[in-house]
Design a protein around this nucleic acid. Structure first.
Lengths: 217, 217
DNA sequence: ACTGAGTTCGAACGAACGTTCGAATCAGCG
DNA sequence: CGCTGATTCGAACGTTCGTTCGAACTCAGT
C-alpha cells in the first residue's frame, strides 16, 4: 500500500528476448543484494546502517527504498535466496544416487562447497538466523525445516540399512554444528578446499556415527 | 580519566570479614552483568540498547555508568568472566587425569555442562565473538587461544599415544562447532542433559577421529 | 520535441541511540 | 545530629538511526 504498483517486487513482467535473463529491475536488485551481503557479513545486521549499505552499493540512501521496502525485508531477500539456492543444488545432486552413505557425503560436500564459495552469504544466513521477525521469520523457518528434514531422512535411511543405533536428532544437529561453525575459523590461505574438508568431516562424522557398539565410557 | 578514583573498577579494597565475599560494589556489578547477559542473549549486542539494560536491571540509565564506562566494556566483562570461569573449571577437572581419551571426554563434558548451565552467557560468548574491538578483542582472543591450545594439546597426545593420523586443526574446530552450535537448537524440554549429550558427542567425535584407516570414499 | 513510466536523489522527518552532568539520596561513622 | 564519600537518578547532550517525500533525471516510443 502506498507504493507504486510495480516497484519493490520481483518482476513478473514478461521479458521479450533471451539476451537479458532478467529485467533491469531484477539485475539491479541482485547487485544491491550482493553488496548488502558483504556489509551484513562484516558488521552484522543490526550493526550495519542503511547508510553503510548505500555507500557500499553506490546508490543513494533513498534510492535503495525503490528496490525493497525495509531493511528487514532486504535481509530476508538475502537469506531466502541463499537458502533456496543451496536446497535446490542439493536436490539436483542427490538425484539418481541411492546409496545412503553416498547421499550423506553429497549432502556434506554440497553444504561446504556452497559455504566456502559464498562465505559472506552463508555467514549472514548462519549468524543472523534470529534477526527476522514474525512473517519473515516463519517463511525462512519453513525452508530451514525442509533442509533439516532432508538430512534427517538421509540419516534414518543409513541407520535402517546398517541396523545402527543413535539419536538422529543429535547426530544431525552435531553435523550442522561442525559445518556451520566454519565461518568462524576458515582461512583460505591456511585451510584446504571444500572437497577435502568435506571428506575429512564426512569421515569423522560417518565413522563416529557408525560402529554399532554403544561405546560407553 | 574524569571518573571518581575508585569507581568503575573491580575492587582492590580490602574486605574485612568473610561474611560478604566481595564488596557491595562488586556484588551490584555482578547483578547487573547477569541481567545484561540475558538481554544481550535475547536481542544481541548491537540490538540491545542501554535503555533495555536499564529496564532489565532495575537501575536508571545513568546509574549503570557508575559501574562500567561503556556498553562495549560491559560486554567485555561478561565475556571475560564467562571464558575465564570455564577455563579455570576445566583445569581443575583435568588435574590428576592422565589418560588422553579420558581427558578429551572431560573437556567435552566440562564445555557442555557449563554451556547448558549458563546458556545465556555462553550464547553471548559464542555469538558476539566479533563485537569487541582492538584492546578488548585482543585480551579476549588471548583467553580463547589458551582454551583452544589446551584442546589441541589433548588431541595431539591422544594421536601420539595411538599412532593415529588426522588433521588436529580440523578435528578440534569441528568439535568446537558441534559443541557451540548447541545454543541454536538445545531445548531443555526435549533434549537430554549435559552428561548424556557429552557422552553422545564424545562417542561420535572420538570414534570418528580414531580408527586408523584413512577411509577414503 | 513531447510524453510518461521507470529510476535516482537531496533533504528532511521523528525516534532512538550511547553518554554526560549536576543534583539528590543513601549508608556508615563521629 | 551532621559530615563524607558512595551510589542513584532525571534531564538533557549531540549524533545517528530507518524511513519518507517530492522533485529531478533517463530514455524508449510517438
Amino acid at each position: 500500500m502506498g507504493s507504486p504498483s510495480t516497484a519493490a517486487r520481483v518482476s513478473t513482467r514478461p521479458h521479450r528476448v533471451a539476451s537479458t535473463p532478467a529485467t533491469r529491475f531484477d539485475r539491479r536488485l541482485s547487485e544491491i543484494l550482493t553488496h548488502a551481503t558483504d556489509v551484513f557479513c562484516e558488521k552484522g545486521y543490526e550493526g550495519a546502517s542503511m547508510r553503510d549499505l548505500s555507500r557500499a552499493s553506490g546508490m543513494s540512501l533513498a534510492g535503495l527504498y525503490y528496490y525493497f521496502e525495509s531493511k528487514e525485508r532486504l535481509l530476508f531477500l538475502i537469506q531466502k535466496h541463499t537458502f533456496t539456492t543451496i536446497v535446490q543444488r542439493l536436490k539436483a545432486r542427490l538425484d539418481g544416487v541411492s546409496d545412503p552413505e553416498q547421499q550423506v557425503r553429497i549432502f556434506i560436500l554440497n553444504h561446504l562447497e556452497y559455504f566456502l564459495a559464498n562465505q559472506a552469504a552463508m555467514k549472514v544466513l548462519s549468524h543472523e538466523a534470529e534477526a527476522l521477525k514474525n512473517g519473515f521469520a516463519s517463511e525462512l523457518a519453513a525452508i530451514k525445516r525442509e533442509y533439516y528434514r532432508i538430512c534427517v531422512g538421509l540419516m534414518e535411511e543409513l541407520k535402517r540399512e546398517r541396523g545402527m543405533q543413535f539419536s538422529t536428532r543429535i547426530a544431525v544437529l552435531s553435523l550442522f554444528g561442525m559445518m556451520n561453525w566454519i565461518y568462524t575459523w576458515h582461512n583460505p590461505r591456511v585451510d584446504a578446499d571444500a572437497k577435502q574438508l568435506a571428506n575429512e568431516m564426512s569421515d569423522i562424522f560417518l565413522r563416529g556415527v557408525m560402529t554399532s557398539g554403544k561405546g560407553r565410557r
